[in-house]
Simulated scan of single mutants.
Amino acid sequence: MSPRAGSAGPHTLAFVESPVQLLNVLEWAYSNALQDPGAGLTLVVLSPTDPMTRGQLRRMAELARDEGYEVRWEEARGGPTAPFHTIGGLAGVLRRADRIVMGDPFSRYVQLLLTITRARELVVVDDGTATMEFVAQLARGERLVRWHRKGGRPGPRDLLFAPVSSSARRRLTPSAHRTVEVFSSMPIDSVPEGVKVTRNDFSWTRVRFGPPRLTKGADLVGTSLVETGVVDGDRYLEAVRALAKAHGATRYFAHRRESTDKLRRLAAETGLEIVRPDLPLELIARRGPIGRTILSFPSTVVHTLPLALVGTEVRVAVCDIDPTWLTENASPRAQGFLSGVTGTARDVHRLSAVSMA
């Protein structure tokens, strides 16, 4: 039992499925320490199957335990019966929790768990750019759908799950009996009525790590836009090669969802050193060593890295996605959404789409 698990304050249950979500729960907990120092926090990791994600989650879980929080690791996807065992095992603590913190309101797992809870306080912490879309959809009263999903009619699984998704959306709407907070470093324009938005400025990260030692060169940050079917793989490789050549980048920090085959090809055809981080990039960059320039395509890091690296001499530069790079299966909303991610980023240097010549 952790030092805080049995504290007298209201108990908080946090559900995370990615390393970044776990990092942002720690940031949320740190920012709330003065207002609610006695609150117990239990982190529930709904473990995915991807080895890279699992490895980063293990490392983040260690950091959470070092902070004194209880961590409960659930093999939530470890076979056909795993979801039933996980949900059944969590039902009791879910009903007793006063506050639920979640990293991904689009997650069907989380939406199922929300149907069980009686918590009067719900908190959504950042899951990157998806947070922007979640808040916008909540404000418009739309069903919760990830931005990169292709438009059109819902599939059979969507229709089957629709009642649960609708219930989750209702629970994530503030009422006289329930408060909803969004803890985010992302730009949020249209805030639903009654939703409290709290700024995540990465205070915990800056206090615990760094400042970093800076190298002379540039580093490039990878993206999973190819894996999600948004950007064409060949076009992406050409863009990385051109960007690295133009700015003298030597290292490529891979996104945890990037495929091994793609990374192997990138290394062979660009000469970049492929780095597979064992922690979220915000922590990697803060610990250093890191390049004086960090190059990225539109992604969460163009918003989070300037905050994590405030006070250092690191420059974050973002390269636009050319519309011709998009696949025919990309959502009709993809280009506008990606442009919005870039256009709303603060304290970054904006690059035009690189020339393929």
Score class of each variant (00 low, 15 high):
T327S: 04
E17F: 04
P174M: 06
R65Y: 00
V124S: 09
G55L: 09
T131I: 04
G40H: 02
Q137G: 11
L159K: 08
I100D: 02
R59S: 14
S296R: 00
N329H: 14
L326F: 10
L46D: 03
T215R: 06
V207D: 13
E17P: 03
A136F: 01
T342N: 09
D261Y: 07
D66V: 03
I294P: 08
A29T: 08
S352V: 03
S165R: 12
D320K: 09
R118D: 07
M52H: 15
F202T: 03
H148A: 05
P80F: 07
R170Y: 00
L26G: 07
P105S: 10
L57A: 12
T344N: 13
R54K: 14
L46K: 00
L34T: 11
G6Q: 04
D234G: 11
L214M: 09
L144H: 04
V314G: 11
L338Y: 07
R256G: 07
T12C: 13
A285V: 06
E27W: 06
G311T: 12
L41T: 00
F183P: 04
V180Y: 00
R251F: 10
A33I: 07
Y109H: 05
D36S: 10
T304H: 03
P280L: 02
D189M: 10
R143E: 06
P187V: 05
G89N: 01
R257D: 15
L295N: 05
G78T: 08
Y109R: 07
E258N: 08
I321T: 15
N32V: 12
V231Y: 01
D347G: 03
I274S: 13
P37V: 10
I87R: 13
L13Q: 06
V348S: 12
L94A: 01
R241K: 14
S224M: 05
A168I: 02
A162S: 09
V20N: 14
E121S: 09
R169E: 01
L309V: 08
G210Y: 10
G311Y: 12
P105D: 05
